[in-house]
Design a protein around this nucleic acid. Structure first.
Lengths: 137, 137
DNA sequence: GTATTTTACTTGTAAAAAGCAAGTGATGTG
DNA sequence: CACATCACTTGCTTTTTACAAGTAAAATAC
């Protein structure tokens, strides 16, 4: 029996994962950081998903609090912040790629480029290395 | 721009995935079916997670509607139903295993057996075959 | 054949979370 | 100094989740 009102839901990996990043907006933020090159609050806002400003702010705070993303002042422009994935966040990549692999099979209207999927299935480690290289640090 | 009020959120794999199974209770149901050998409504209720009956009923209906699980009458006892993963549901296993792999690193209180994790990392395909063999059909 | 139990829910309501629109404050620019 | 940019906060509404009680179909006991 777990105390479902506690925050971390330790013990079971699925339950723990859900408590750390397990709602759709968090998944989409991680997607944007990991694959879309987005790193500013306004870029998440402008991703076209329809998120509300208070929800975005809240999710970014949760992800930072859980150690999945890092928030720092933009040295070039002090009025904005740069969000990046931490090591803990970057290590979600295998799970994200597995989700994309699955979704490509079952979404009739997927927009994932065919060569991305081909590479994901034929050379997964190489694709992951390339994606990791593209991440800002 | 997507219509976030529509149900399927096609196009982006992460968004699509979230629309198909993307809330914590759905993940926990899939976990129970995939790894815990649970297949009846009362078994999900008794898993000790604290889910409400209307939420469980609603999530099972959604997962069935999305083609991820199958619901059928128990031939041995007509007053109950058997839930099983469909092919579409079973193919979520790589993602679930990747989530478990990640969680084992970051949950200080994980209860996953060490030999399960060792096998997941040293012989992932073999572990998956064994898990698949254990699933009811 | 009837009463009771089992199993899977449904219903009504309260609490919590999500979402909307407007507003605020720190920082930058002209 | 006025205005723009950027990242939120606030107050309120709507939706979802959770709680507790109730219902119906099927099985079991007698």
């Amino acid at each position: 029996m777990v105390d479902k009102n506690s925050k971390t839901w330790s013990g079971c990996p699925v339950r723990f994962g859900m408590s750390q990043f397990g709602d759709k907006w968090s998944f989409l933020i991680i997607r944007d950081l990991m694959f879309k090159g987005r790193q500013y609050y306004h870029e998440f806002m402008d991703a076209g998903e329809g998120i509300s400003t208070n929800i975005l702010a809240n999710r970014l705070a949760d992800l930072e609090s859980n150690g999945i993303i890092n928030k720092s002042k933009d040295p070039a422009k002090g009025s904005r912040f740069i969000y990046t994935l931490t090591k803990k966040g970057i290590e979600l990549m295998p799970m994200m790629l597995a989700m994309m692999d699955w979704a490509e099979k079952y979404d009739n209207e997927t927009e994932v480029p065919a060569d991305f999927i081909n590479k994901l299935r034929s050379e997964p480690d190489k694709l992951q290395q390339e994606l990791l290289k593209n991440l800002p640090t």
